[in-house]
Simulated assay, not measured.
Amino acid sequence: MNSTTVRGATIHYDDFGPSTGLPVLLIHGHPFNRTLWAPQVTALTEAGHRVVAPDLRGYGRSSVSTGKVLLADFADDLAALLDHLEIERAVVGGVSMGGQITMEFQSRHPGRVRALVLSDTSAPAETAEGKRFRNRLADRLLAEGMEGYAHEVIDKMLAAYNVTAMPEVATRVLEMMCATDPRGAAAALRGRAERPDYRDVLAAVEAPVLIVVGADDVYTPVAEAESIQHLVPHSVLAVVDKAGHLPGAEQPERFNAVLLDFLAARM
């Protein structure tokens, strides 16, 4: 693991694979860290790609910014990290909140995108109800910590049947959530409550786009992924069976096969 300071924050990140390989930037969701992508890092580096997987500010081992961290802040952090690594353009992909950061990155830094990977995410702006929910949840996490919330949502982060069928995966996901600093999680929630509408951004994308979704995702169902595909007619949509909101963790072999096929065909 490496670290660097960008835009006033210390960002910890993994950088694996040959420096000459196709750069792939993987962005975790809330409330996780870079290790969520461990199965993808292994598969991508074995295929000869270079993989950069950071802990977003406020998550993992990266420093915490309190108050509010906008998706734009995360996107600009990642652009600065690519500058530090002397990577001009990369395949940029994320899951859930990480997918929304990916869309924000496309909006703010389109010239740096070779392709997009959008997993289990949503493009419309946050609703008024969603804003209230995220701000209330931020207050709760600051008051109570992460553990109660983590146990409440584990059977939504993973398909409910996988919580019992895949105890090692469930434990790993729970440990990530419980280890997250509540201040970082709260700041991201408050920033995400201000999420803009990314549908026009997606409609204008000319780069290759892969959309992945777990067949049993209750947070961003298959219909959300299909709506993104309608916005980006040249995109590829893959529905991963026997998975919920985190198909890369629940069905890594299937997720990896889809991702590697996409990169092989279009890069």
Rank of each mutant, 00 (worst) to 15 (best):
A225C: 13
N256V: 14
P39M: 13
L142V: 01
G184S: 04
F262A: 02
P182T: 03
Y13W: 13
P182I: 04
P39N: 10
G244N: 10
G145P: 05
V51N: 07
T4E: 15
A186V: 06
A187V: 01
E194T: 07
D83S: 11
A79H: 15
K242H: 14
A185N: 06
V222M: 12
G130D: 06
V41P: 00
D14A: 14
H245Q: 15
R183K: 09
C178E: 14
S19Y: 07
L158P: 05
V117F: 03
P23E: 13
L26F: 00
M267K: 00
H230D: 14
R89M: 08
R192A: 14
V213S: 09
E104Q: 10
Q251N: 01
A90V: 08
G17A: 02
L85N: 06
A160W: 01
A143N: 02
A188F: 01
G48R: 05
L71V: 11
H151N: 15
G21C: 07
A215N: 13
L231Y: 13
L137K: 09
D155S: 14
R254T: 15
P31V: 07
D217L: 03
R136K: 10
L158K: 01
L78W: 04
K68M: 08
V232F: 12
A223V: 13
E126K: 01
D200Q: 11
R199T: 11
A115T: 06
V24Y: 05
P233C: 03
G94L: 01
A238M: 10
R140F: 10
D139Q: 07
H28L: 07
H245A: 09
T4H: 12
R195K: 12
Y161V: 08
I87F: 09
S65M: 02
F133K: 10
Q229I: 00
D15N: 15
T4D: 09
D241V: 02
T121A: 00
P208G: 11
P182W: 01
G17N: 01
G214E: 11
I211D: 00
R89P: 01
M166E: 14
V236Q: 14
D261V: 07
A80P: 03
P54A: 05
H12C: 10
G29I: 03
V69L: 02
H49M: 11
S119G: 06
T5E: 15
A9F: 06
D77H: 09
D15W: 10
T66H: 13
I154R: 02
A159K: 05
A115H: 09
E144Q: 08
A193M: 08
T66E: 14
V95E: 04
V92S: 07
S235W: 04
G248M: 12
E147W: 03
A243M: 04
L85A: 12
G29Q: 11
P221Q: 03
M166N: 14
L36H: 10
E129C: 02
E86S: 14
I228A: 04
D14T: 09
Q106K: 05
P124M: 08
L189M: 11
S119D: 15
D14P: 00
V69M: 04
I211H: 01
T4I: 12
T35N: 06
P247F: 04
V232G: 02
L237A: 08
G93W: 02
L210H: 08
D155W: 01
E250M: 00
R266M: 05
G191V: 09
R132T: 15
G48K: 02
R195I: 03
G21W: 08
P31G: 06
R192Y: 11
P208C: 08
S19T: 09
Y13K: 12
V52M: 05
E86N: 06
